[in-house]
Design a protein around this nucleic acid. Structure first.
Lengths: 206, 206
DNA sequence: CCCGTCACTGACTATGGAGTCAGTGTACTA
DNA sequence: TAGTACACTGACTCCATAGTCAGTGACGGG
């Protein structure tokens, strides 16, 4: 029976944490880490401030929990997408499209995700940095895997795959940034084509 | 004589503001906008807090003044660099090299500069956003001009020059970020070659 | 139906830092 | 040399908000 009791408690915990994280993502994206208050988050989640502290030790912890949740979600989505196609071209284009689409639908997450990068070396305790760095580089490694496969199949010329993967991620980030800032009005598919075209010409064999 | 008096006051003002801005750049880069205190800046500049408020109305104003100063400095440096060479290839490579070098030497400025982008749509009053956006896009336009010239000379294929220019800026930003985070250990010249090679293959005619 | 547990609340405390302003000393002026 | 202007100081005020904890009421078990 102890499992049954635990399970019930777990359900409540799950309910509260997901509510709080969802609210946190929205509020942090809207105001940034410092401007957002715990009261804002609590209100958005429909609970009192004290309740937030029942589930998280500090504002920072809420923040990183929200960040990690988003990263994990996106990552599994990207993996799924990659399994749908088999050629390196297809995978690369699919990945670009999936990332653009995900960020476009989760603009709040995008803001948290990338504002983090800028802050890494300053604000946080080292442990968190490393954890985030690992999660971030896992993303880039998805691209790197595609590049390596392409190189093996002689579709892609030899180049520093790690650097190239990072560069591709950066282009994607840039395009999404401009979309979100409202500086670009193209359709997503146009942007995908543009990125893929530029990148593929840049990396293709011959 | 009134000009003489004015000039003397101007000298003092110039002396103070440049001291404060220099300190501000360092402190903001180290701690980020919110973690940095006006006392930190004053101390770093060797003045009392009140003195900072003699020259700037608020902490925000100090921040943006430091940001704008850095942008202007970099911009004039880039222009100078571009005048040294004539071909589009040379200009593009020179610009990449100059930007990497500048950011490498002014890591503090880099952090302020790009952390700003992430925060644009949230924190600031709209007027400042627009001002910053203009300064930012001026940078990208340098690249765009090169691309257009290249296209005219049939060295570069036809593509959306504005988007491409932004993408190139994004790659540069990414590489600098990884350098500054200590994730990359290549020499600057290697990174320049890498970026140029990737980009040029991506945009060259045929 | 009553009692005990505990998730939840929100008023409260403690802290830190932005912005102020009365006072100080220096440098120029007459 | 005495007087005045003014750049500069830093202790102070005031506010915002992170984090706490004594109190409340709902719910489940006996």
């Amino acid at each position: 029976m102890s499992t049954a009791i635990k399970t019930k408690k777990d359900v409540v915990t799950e309910f509260r944490t997901s509510g709080i994280l969802e609210a946190a993502r929205k509020v942090f994206a809207e105001k940034g880490f410092h401007e957002a208050t715990v009261d804002d988050i609590a209100e958005a989640a429909g609970v009192a401030k004290g309740t937030v502290y029942l589930y998280y030790e500090s504002k920072r912890e809420v923040y990183f929990a929200a960040l990690k949740f988003g990263i994990a979600q996106m990552y599994s989505l990207l993996l799924e997408e990659l399994n749908k196609v088999s050629t390196p071209e297809g995978k690369l284009k699919g990945l670009i499209a999936a990332k653009l689409a995900y960020f476009d639908e989760n603009r709040d997450f995008f803001k948290i995700y990338y504002s983090e990068l800028g802050n890494i070396p300053t604000t946080h305790p080292a442990g968190i940095d490393n954890e985030f760095k690992a999660l971030y580089q896992e993303q880039a490694r998805l691209v790197e895997t595609i590049l390596k496969e392409g190189a093996r199949k002689k579709l892609i010329r030899n180049l520093r795959t790690e650097q190239t993967a990072l560069a591709i991620s950066d282009i994607i980030r840039g395009v999404v940034t401009h979309r979100i800032l409202g500086w670009s009005k193209s359709k997503i598919s146009q942007d995908v084509d543009f990125i893929f075209d530029l990148v593929w010409k840049g990396i293709a064999a011959q």
